[in-house]
Design a protein around this nucleic acid. Structure first.
Lengths: 252, 252
DNA sequence: CCTAGTCCACTGGTCAGACCAGTCGGCGCA
DNA sequence: TGCGCCGACTGGTCTGACCAGTGGACTAGG
């Protein structure tokens, strides 16, 4: 018996998929740039020669991928969103939709990711980068006397620097995205924290310990302190029942 | 002047979004499990009390997120796919709770995530994507004759393609991040592997087996081979005491 | 001249109903 | 028993309609 040919499963290509492809191709080629607008749905109907239902199904896919955003009544048409990669934007869109039930998961994710960044950074850092880290600590100290927003910004700079030192762009983007989402979910609560000055001092102290551990090359300890700090910082915003899970993440 | 309150932009919730949320919530609660079927579109119209256009827009979003897949004429209705983003989030949390950031755990994480990606990819891949996979195999073969860095790059391309075929952004992002971390931790050791050519050939062979299994639609076998391969590839870099844990992950 | 109000063309969101090409189970015929 | 046809479904697409918003053009009143 001759070897049986291996046939492929065939599946029809849907019209809305081809629309999605055309838009993403145009984006990849640069014919479409962030900030630009897509024609209105009815105009797209004319251009693609399909029904509006089909156009809309394609727009839903693009929207779910973070490529476009539609606003009812906007005469300019759907907006092309700024994005580095559609996967990243999609990530943002997905994460941004999660409700407070999974806030603890997001925080856990941050604890893991930030710990990873620190552990890598403690091996790869140059003396200059260590200096930069310590400069950021000073900036954080000064920011405490301004207000919480300033401190938060300095804290952001610290973690961005850590991620950069890790020389892993994916850690960078991941850290940034998740941090943004977490802050977006609890920003109002954080801003109202009554005793935020004590919290900020405590956080600063932990950050200094992290830098110390990085200086001595003890990435393991540095990551642990960072996770502890993040737990202390965010634990108040998750239900008691879920705190135990997060606390377990601190140790290793 | 009183401090101006920070208002949040409000945006209307669309009907199709609420449908998406309901489905994903059911998935998160476990009321809906992979392999199960959604009611037919017309039945969903009756349950959600919306029009079919609205149901279909919601299905397009879910499909684009790798949660369901529709097939014309299938009397069973849309299929709930395994390893949807919501399910993976839970897996990530569970794994992270056990232990994290030791090299062996990261490798275990990669074995799980890569296996998930391959299992999904073997069901969703188009014939064109299978061709792409085989082209990547050829590229890996050629890269062996160059050097280890080239091979590593081709290997990266292979796994990125798998993740892309899985059409699941969470798989994509996690795979990339963790892979980057693992390589960062052992890059120096890997580069010094004296007999790396034999290792590369072995790895290539395993990758070809994975593609074969994907071609025949045997996602289970494909994922198992991939986990085995990853174990063989990395096991040398973790302590003997932890290898047993990793080995247990190979089987499903 | 500027402002405030009205209007209107247009947007996206949703709906109802229709047709088609597939898919699959079952019935009946050979 | 085996096979082919049929019919009741499925999802993909289309048409045409209505509605609540949006924002620009226009206009009346200062």
């Amino acid at each position: 018996m001759t070897k049986s040919p291996k046939f492929e499963p065939v599946q029809p290509v849907r019209a809305y998929q081809r629309i999605v492809e055309q838009v993403e191709d145009a984006l990849a080629r640069g014919d479409l740039v962030p900030g630009q607008r897509l024609p209105s749905e009815r105009e797209l109907v004319a251009q693609f020669e399909v029904s509006r239902s089909t156009v809309r199904e394609a727009l839903r896919v693009l929207e779910s991928n973070g490529v476009v955003r539609s606003r009812p009544g906007d005469p300019n048409g759907p907006e092309i969103l700024p994005f580095s990669s559609s996967a990243l934007r999609k990530q943002v869109a997905r994460l941004a939709r999660v409700d407070e039930l999974t806030l603890s998961e997001l925080i856990g994710f941050r604890m893991i990711m930030d710990g990873a960044a620190i552990q890598v950074a403690s091996r790869l850092r140059t003396p200059e980068e260590l200096d930069d880290l310590e400069a950021t600590l000073v900036a954080m100290r000064d920011a405490i006397d301004v207000d919480f927003a300033a401190f938060s910004e300095a804290d952001l700079a610290f973690h961005e620097l850590i991620a950069r030192i890790s020389r892993n762009s994916l850690i960078q983007t991941c850290n940034e995205v998740v941090r943004g989402v977490v802050l977006g979910l609890i920003a109002d609560k954080v801003a109202h924290a009554a005793n935020s000055r004590a919290l900020m001092l405590e956080s600063l102290h932990h950050h200094a310990e992290v830098v110390d551990a990085i200086r001595t090359g003890n990435g393991h300890a540095a990551a642990r302190i960072a996770r502890q700090n993040m737990f202390d910082y965010y634990a108040g915003y998750v239900p008691d029942s879920e705190q135990e899970t997060l606390r377990a993440l601190i140790e290793d």
